[in-house]
Each structure stands twice: as C-alpha cells, then as structure tokens.
Nucleic acid binder design. Structure first.
Lengths: 225, 225
DNA sequence: GTCTGTTTTAAACATACGTTTGAAGCCAAT
DNA sequence: ATTGGCTTCAAACGTATGTTTAAAACAGAC
C-alpha cells in the first residue's frame, strides 16, 4: 500500500467504539489498538480527540445531508404548490437515512446511536460543530414540519417536536441493546429499517393527537398552572 | 451541628453535577469541592464512586417507587375487575412523579435527566443496580400497559414502549434548557407539570396509532425485510 | 479530664488519560 | 546515491482521576 489507510482505520475503529461506549468512555488508546495503528497517529492526522469526533460525524453527515436536501427537493417539487404532509416529510427523512450507502451491516445503527449520544451527552464542542455544519437541512426539516401541522399552536408544535426528537434519539441511541433484549425475550430479529417503520407512525400519531386528551381523567390532582 | 450533614451535602452536589455533566464527566473532586467537604469523604461514606451513583438514585427512587405502587393499587381497585385504560395508567405514573416531595424547584427535571442518562450512558453497574432494586414496579407498569393495549402485538407494544420512554426521558432530561429556549422565543412560561400534560396525550396517541400507517406512502423505496 | 469510636483532613499513591517529542522509516523525485 | 517531505514509532510529558493512608479533630460517655 503506497499511502497507508491509517486515517480510515482510525475512523472505523473510533466510530464503532464511540457508538458502543460513548465519547469520554472511549480512550485514544482503545481506538488506536483496535485500529492497529500507533497512538500518536490520531493527533498527527486529526490534531486532537475532539477533532477526531468531528471527523467521525462529518464522514457520515456530509453525504447524508446532501441526500436529504435532494429528497426534500423532490418531495416539494412533487407536491406542487401545497406543502408536503407530515407523513411524507417524516418518510423522506427516514428513507434518506435508511438508504445511505453503508460501510458495513451495522452502518445505520451505529450512526443512529452516535446521533443520539451527540444529543444526549453534553459535549458542547460537538453540538456547536453539528449546528454550524449541518444546521441548514435541520432548519428546513423544521419548516416542513411547521407547514405540515398548521392546526397546532406554536407552543404545542414546539413541544411535540421535542417529543419526536426524544423518542427517535433515545431509541436509536440504545437500539443495539434494545434489539438484543427483544431477541432474547421473543426470539424476534429487528432491523433498523423495521424500527424506523414502527417509529414513524408512532410519531405521526403523536404529532396529530387531539388536544381534548389534554384533560386529565377524573380524580386527577394535576391542574394547569 | 452535632453530626455533620456531609452525606447529604455530597448527595446534593453529586445529583446536580451528574445531571449537568453525566457520570464519567463528573469527578469526585468537582463533587467534594461543590459540597465543600474533603475529597476522601466520598470513599469514607459511600465506598466508591459507583456506590455514590447508586445512592443518588436510591434517595429518589425508593420513595418514588413506594408512591407509585400505592397509585397503582388505588387505580386497580377503583377499576374493579376491568383493567385500567392506557390514559389512566399513564396519568397514574405522571402524577406520582409530579407530586413527589422535592428538595428544590429543580427536583423533577434533575431526576428525569438522571434517569435518561442511566438509560443512555452505558454504565453496566447502574443498569444492573436499578433492575435489581426497582425492577418490580417497572414490571408492574409494563403489565398494566399490556392490559391497556390488547390490540397491539407483543413486538409492536415493545417498541412503542421504548418510544414512550425515549420521548419522556429525553424531554424531561433537557426540559430546563428547552423551557428557556421556548421562553426566549415566545415569552411563554412552561412548568414541568404542563410539559407532562402535553406529553401524555402525545404518548397515548402514539401508542394507539393505527398499524395501517405502517405502510410507507406511494413511491417509497423502503420495504419490510 | 480521659478514654473511645467516629469523622475529617492533608498528603500521597497508582493508574490512566490526551498530547508532544525526536528519531527512525519510507517512498518518490532529483 | 542522495535529498526532502510525509508518515510511523517508542518513549516520555504533564495532568487528572479514583482510592488509600495515617494522623488530627471531634463528640459523647464515664
């Protein structure tokens, strides 16, 4: 090999270990020993551990955000002048994620877990990096959601979007463990695609829930402030 | 002070710091300096950092699980021989959480965030501890959910419960930050109680979503494996 | 006051971490 | 063959971590 593939080996090992154990729980020494490269290689090629984390995300997110923008383009065009529905918007996102070319069979689930960790773990530098680099497609997704749920008040929509993000990030962030539990219990295998197909209708139904259910059942001691 | 309140001061500081920064990102020195106690006090009173983490959870979870069991008792009794509805079950849980006596105004949101971290962060010892100590009320909640959603297949129910947990843990875990954002944007104040009142109908609607929505819209390339 | 068991303290310990260093290795161009 | 620019390597650096130690401080009982 004329030019070594050290960089890719580091990225592969880091991606997998970060997804398994989180960022601060994964040391550079674990990464370099899994990648079978010298410890100093990380700082030589990436500069720092934080920069390596950014690179792991960029390797997936850059092509993904391009795919997503294209999917939104097609969706909006096919809808003419009326806005895409909630279901269409959610599916456009889901399909873009599921159809991304993957390095291996664990591809999506690894990356979903990383995204979940990014949101959950309070890594300030990561959130800032993701916002700066990939804030645009996210804003566009939010705009589509707004147009698809005109019946919701701004406050309701705001909270329900948080609920959706939560269900998604949380489930994906622990999806490997959850899948294993389910398989042990019922023997059923579940792919990330199938999880996504179960998640979307759950989210869509939640987003469109009737407000009337907001009233607690009789005997409740909770009251609106 | 005859006998110092060192133990409680450590627990208070640890609880807040863990919630803010996660477990491995919080050092014993941060905790002891915030609590204004000697570094060795943690190992003296608790034995180890992991044992301190367990103690933080036990201080809240023990009274909470008692309250919850009582709420479930009352609910099942008031329902006679037919099982409680999904809404009733969710509200019983929500009210038990909201009505717990709190040490301060941040009480619930801190603890929700800790619960989220416990699930998300791959701390094996913690998951094992929580399962052993508080598995019973959790199983009971699951049983109630099962009785309240007989129309769902076991697999569907399993995943939808995960989605519910995710939306709840995630939202509650960052509810302080989210509340602030919303207030800055719209000037609207939101209490934890109000968030809960918006969350429950979202979850109930998601749980009861029609399976027919599982079919992707026309033109979709996603297929069930 | 003296003793006794508990709690607090400052200091040290061993280990692990991210990062840096300077020499060695390598490969293509001169 | 020699140069020059990347890349790899073993070793070390400085710092931070959880934990342990042994002495000091304290409180209540006699």
């Amino acid at each position: 090999m004329a030019q070594s593939d050290t960089v890719d080996r580091i990225l592969d090992a880091a991606e997998e270990l970060f997804a398994e154990r989180g960022f601060s729980e994964t040391s550079l020494r674990m990464i370099t020993s899994k990648a079978k490269v010298n410890l100093a290689a990380v700082n030589y090629h990436f500069g720092s551990k934080n920069a390596l984390i950014h690179a792991v995300f960029a390797r997936f997110l850059t092509p993904f955000s391009a795919t997503l923008e294209k999917a939104f383009d097609e969706l909006e065009e096919s809808c003419g002048d009326q806005p895409p529905t909630l279901n269409q918007t959610l599916w456009a996102l889901t399909e873009s994620a599921v159809r991304m070319p993957q390095r291996n069979e664990k591809g999506i689930s690894i990356f979903m877990r990383l995204l979940g960790l990014a949101y959950t773990q309070s890594q300030g530098h990561l959130r800032k990096f993701l916002e700066q680099e990939y804030g645009d497609p996210f804003s566009r997704f939010m705009r589509l959601l707004k147009a698809a749920t005109p019946q919701l008040s701004a406050v309701d929509r705001y909270w329900r979007i948080q609920f959706m993000l939560g269900a998604t990030a949380f489930t994906m962030s622990s999806s490997d463990a959850l899948r294993d539990i389910l398989q042990n219990k019922t023997g059923v295998e579940t792919s990330v695609q199938e999880i996504a197909m179960r998640l979307v209708p759950f989210l869509a139904a939640g987003m469109q829930a009737e407000d009337t259910m907001l009233v607690p059942p009789r005997g409740s001691k909770v009251s609106v402030a």
